[in-house]
Computed example of a mutant assay.
Amino acid sequence: MRVSSSQFYTDNLRYIQQNNTELAKLTVQMATKNRIQRPSDDPLGAVMLLTLNAELKTLEQYGANMNAVNYSLGQQETQLNGIVNTLLSLQGLVTTAADGSAGDTELRALGQEMSVLFPAILDFLNAKDGNDRYYFSGSLSDTPPFVRDLAGIYSYQGDALVRQVKVSDTSSVASNIIGEALDPAAGFLNQMQQYLDLINSTPAGGVGDESRQMIDNINSFLANVTGEITRIGGIRASLDELAIANSEIGLFTEELKEEVKTINDAEVFIRLNQVTASYESSLKVYSTVSRLSLFSML
């Protein structure tokens, strides 16, 4: 088969251009250390990189979720610890009032001291976060969880929604404590308020029986609060474990990503030398042949 001069030149030019393109690609790979500059370089590898990047992004979001939940639960735990400390102080005062030897003056003094401590418990229960949202109102974070009406009766105004936050592909954790779980139907608040009204009126018969009943009420409320503190501790411990697991997954994913996208220096260097030699050889052949003509044969 005879090959025309124009076809010969066209084929040689195409071969030179192919080598030039390959040379440019290899040069960029050597400079960036990235094997895949565009999807066509390795379609399967490009898809894998997209998948790995998406997984790393998801792990990053999980990390942000865990940090937010951990911080919020830590703040809620601080409020609950404040309640515990105040309850212990109230418990001591009520225990003193339960002693039948306390006189009117002492009972009034005890009642006044309790009246100072009691509002602190309500403040802790109605605590807000940095965005001015109530911790213990469930999903109704703009509503104070515990309020007192005009008749002097406390009630819970929040709902029972526990917000679940996804922290891994297979698990979510609670990010809030419900006020109803701390003081169902505001029972303790109303019991304590009634007790304070009684002791501040200094009844002639004393408050021995009522104080002993109040000690039981305090213990019941204290058990609710400490139970939620324990639950928070469990959630935060599980978050620490998940953070470690997600970190290990992230490290493995990063390593796999680097393996997929990073060049093998030795292989690319050898290929670069081969393409360079072929490119230079093609140029010399084309340059020599392009100067030939029929007059060169005469």
Rank of each mutant, 00 (worst) to 15 (best):
E77Y: 02
A31D: 11
G205N: 11
A245R: 14
L150F: 11
T96N: 13
K33Y: 05
E241D: 15
G111R: 06
S72K: 13
T21R: 09
A151V: 09
Q194V: 11
E248R: 12
T51V: 08
S72G: 08
M214D: 12
N176V: 03
N246L: 05
E60T: 14
I235Q: 07
E241A: 15
A243L: 08
N12W: 00
T143F: 01
Y154R: 08
L117S: 06
N81I: 02
N70T: 06
Q79M: 12
D265T: 12
M66A: 10
M214R: 09
S168P: 02
Q61R: 08
D123P: 00
Q75N: 13
A223S: 15
N273S: 14
P43W: 01
L13H: 11
G234M: 06
F118Y: 11
L88M: 12
V28D: 15
A46M: 05
T262L: 02
T21P: 02
V162Y: 02
G100V: 01
K25V: 06
R133K: 15
E241M: 10
I229G: 07
D197A: 07
Y71H: 11
S281M: 11
I244Y: 07
D209V: 14
E180A: 13
N20G: 08
K261N: 15
I215D: 11
I199G: 10
L182Y: 03
V275E: 09
I16L: 12
G82C: 04
F124S: 13
T21V: 09
D209G: 08
L140P: 04
Q37W: 00
N34A: 08
A204F: 04
N246W: 00
N264M: 02
